[in-house]
């Protein structure tokens, strides 16, 4: 039987937590068997989403879970906060749109890095779920 890795929850409050969250993502990805390139994609995605929490929501949670099956390895990450929410998600997903003086590439860039990307947001709850999936070799 394959051993599943327990989900990790990282609380996000300030920018030191961003570093911690991406280290955890990288480590779990490594344990599951993702390549270095994929570990870097995941760490970068986690960095973007958790920084958005610190910048726009204040605090939140990053949950990193092994969701692998028999045929594939899958790392699923949910980044969630109870901040003000995003009023126009379509606009937030556009390249170059930023209300914080950033490059405006965090959300659209993360979508391009990942295989699965879903975002839902309302005042008081923003939740982004991402996943990277690879066939077992």
């Amino acid at each position: 039987m394959r051993e599943m890795i327990d989900p990790e929850r990282v609380l996000i409050r300030d920018s030191t937590d961003i570093v911690r969250a991406r280290a955890v993502a990288r480590q779990v990805a490594n344990q599951i068997g993702f390549t270095l390139a994929d570990q870097t994609r995941l760490a970068t995605a986690v960095s973007e989403l958790t920084r958005n929490i610190v910048q726009y929501a204040g605090e939140g949670v990053c949950e990193i879970a092994d969701a692998s099956g028999e045929e594939e390895i899958r790392l699923r990450i949910i980044v969630e906060d109870n901040g003000p929410g995003i009023d126009d998600i379509d606009r937030a997903m556009k390249d170059g749109y930023s209300t914080g003086g950033g490059l405006g590439v965090g959300l659209p860039g993360t979508r391009r890095l990942m295989d699965d990307f879903a975002i839902e947001s309302s005042p008081g709850c923003t939740r982004v779920s991402i996943a990277l999936v690879r066939r077992r070799v």
Binding site: A37, T40, R41, T44, L103, V105, G109, T110, R112, L113
Partner: peptide, 16 residues
């Protein structure tokens, strides 16, 4: 710049 860093950067967006 490390190779995997370069890959992620370009996949996120060109000319970052």
């Amino acid at each position: 710049v490390q190779p995997y860093v370069a890959m992620s950067l370009v996949e996120m967006g060109r000319d970052l």
